[in-house]
Design a protein around this nucleic acid. Structure first.
Lengths: 341, 341
DNA sequence: CTTGTCAGCAAAAGCGCTTTGGATCGGGTC
DNA sequence: GACCCGATCCAAAGCGCTTTTGCTGACAAG
């Protein structure tokens, strides 16, 4: 069923039917009601491609996910982020389109999406310092919002970020207050902006406490369980092992815990673990009492909020840049305790 | 840059340019080369909506993800599945479109996608018994492939599944051979087909060993870490607690392990754990020696294969149904050992 | 009885592409 | 020399929608 057929059935012109359906005022309420009813009974759905061709926009949001650090590894927060964003999109009548690209193909992918008019806007994931994608997006004039921030970029843009520096500062401070001084940092890839900020927060707290940081106890990499396990194992084999771990992801924290188990060390007694918790739905940090002491912030909520911000941006391209800095919530769990000895 | 402009630059008609670009034979190789070069230098990209309007298909695959069991929880294998599928789509020039719907909105979502011509085909996730979606898809004649199988459906369809029954039969058998008889099953929602099959495999092995199954030791639910933890905790408080757990997801298995830790029980010594391992990228089951004894099968590979199958189906709608039954690989890890006592 | 206004509707021109149905032209056939 | 033919290329008709423009008739104002 298309517009033409529907209009013939109704004995009206396509114009009138289109207007009736799209809420234009130039059509009487009686006619509109008749049209809407007919559209309903004949299960008419406007063809989005034709609509897009005519209007110039696609009612579709692009997410391009790159395999930057590893072709193999998928970001564990991806699903929850998309769930949050997806619901917002759906509510506003937008679809979401995923594009998967190789390591450095992101900028090209954006150019492609723009040239083809495939999407009305994009969400930029995992920004890094001096992110090369933002100038490209500005240049091609494709609306976008950034999940996180990109230090080094001076032209303003829309972003939503967690105060990662403060979150890690406060978490480190908490461990310091418990008497720990040999604190290890297991971070995400530090070319990513958020990881850099977390590291800064950690270092600030350590420095303020007058503690020199052992480079052996700082590591960055893919935030997998294995990454947490291997590095914790290595560090625990150190001549002066850490008494506490500050970890950038609950996934890696699981690996750290496994390393402790393997060495017969009790979590929260012999060794403490504090982590960042993105509130991944299938890995909740304890329904009742938190398993891990953590700085937490829902990635799903972030997805929902960014989606909203992007839609706003699309509808009002000249609005001033919107930015949101969320504070992580610090929760004390069973994984931390006073420094032994 | 659009076709019209490009053809004017070249001094050719739109027809010729279009044909040259799309590899039709009615154009000389010299002209074709000239056109291709010009398209390249002017960064011409055909508008997919216009292309779709003209050809009738969208070069886009739909994935509709429902919040059937829980609005909150995202399937942890989602990201890896999409990564696998996404690469295949990209290679064949397809995009993927996600739609998120409420509990029972899936069938409607399919009708919508079809009526609007938004996608050329869809992937059906998490089929259940007598799945209501398949008749709908047949009725509206939208090409699809199923990740798993839907028992009770008699019209044939394309699917790819892991031999879940055998995987769980063999895993249970392995535990039985180690001397365990109090074996607990922590399963996924059993209205889902794969969970039902796993349960059958488990029951078959137990029955063949002449062991009566304690209903207290069988549970089904959302495959989260918390689900594993809570149920393991409960079962371990039983007057005759299990000496082994058979778990449907490595995520839940992590929860089971946490429950063991909480009770000071050693994994693989006091209590054994065997699990299904979907090879989730950020939760690898040990790079060197497997952490968990597991039946494993890569969900990412499944995504890639299903994508290929769907594209085949779209290109050849009348081909006989394709089905693939993969055997899980059984790996022995550190989480299992002889039944103590 | 004009004139102006305005609600209500229709015709038609795109949007950017593919595809059908010619047109043109040089060369080979009889 | 008339005819056919393959090789190239072009004009124009859609695909299904939105939107500009214009028309018609009713009705109030002058």
């Amino acid at each position: 069923m298309n517009l033409k057929e529907l209009s013939q059935i109704l004995g009206l012109s396509q114009t009138t039917v289109s207007r009736a359906l799209n809420g234009y005022p130039e059509v009487s309420e009686a006619t509109r009601a008749r049209v809407v009813a007919a559209a309903e009974t004949h299960n008419y759905r406007p063809n989005p491609r034709a609509q897009g061709l005519a209007t110039g926009h696609s009612r579709c949001i692009g997410h391009v996910i790159s395999s930057k650090h590893s072709v193999e590894t998928v970001n564990p927060i991806f699903g929850d982020f998309m769930a949050g964003a997806g619901e917002t999109y759906a509510r506003h009548g937008y679809e979401m389109m995923l594009t998967r690209v190789d390591a450095d193909g992101e900028a090209d992918a954006y150019r492609n999406l723009k040239a083809r008019g495939a999407v009305d806007g994009v969400v930029v994931h995992a920004p890094c310092m001096d992110d090369a994608r933002l100038p490209v997006l500005h240049e091609i004039d494709l609306p976008f919002v950034v999940h996180g921030r990109a230090s080094g970029t001076n032209t303003p843009y829309d972003w939503l970020d967690v105060n990662n520096r403060r979150a890690f500062h406060d978490a480190a401070q908490y461990l310091l207050d418990l008497g720990h001084s040999r604190i290890a940092l297991i971070n995400g890839h530090e070319d990513m902006d958020f990881a850099m900020r977390r590291r800064t927060g950690f270092e600030d707290a350590m420095r303020a406490a007058g503690i020199e940081i052992d480079p052996e106890l700082m590591v960055a990499g893919e935030m997998t369980e294995g990454h947490g396990y291997r590095n914790a194992q290595r560090m625990l084999g150190h001549h002066a092992p850490p008494t506490a771990f500050l970890v950038s992801s609950i996934i890696s924290a699981l690996g750290v815990r496994r390393a402790l188990d393997a060495r017969g060390l009790r979590v929260g007694e012999d060794v403490s673990i504090a982590t960042f918790d993105d509130c991944i739905s299938y890995l909740q940090n304890g329904a009742d009492t938190p398993v891990f002491t953590a700085a937490r912030s829902s990635v799903r909520a972030a997805g929902a909020c960014l989606a909203e911000m992007l839609i706003d941006r699309i509808q009002n391209p000249s609005a001033p840049p919107a930015t949101r800095l969320w504070e992580a919530e610090f929760v004390v769990g069973a994984s931390t305790g006073p420094c032994p000895g």
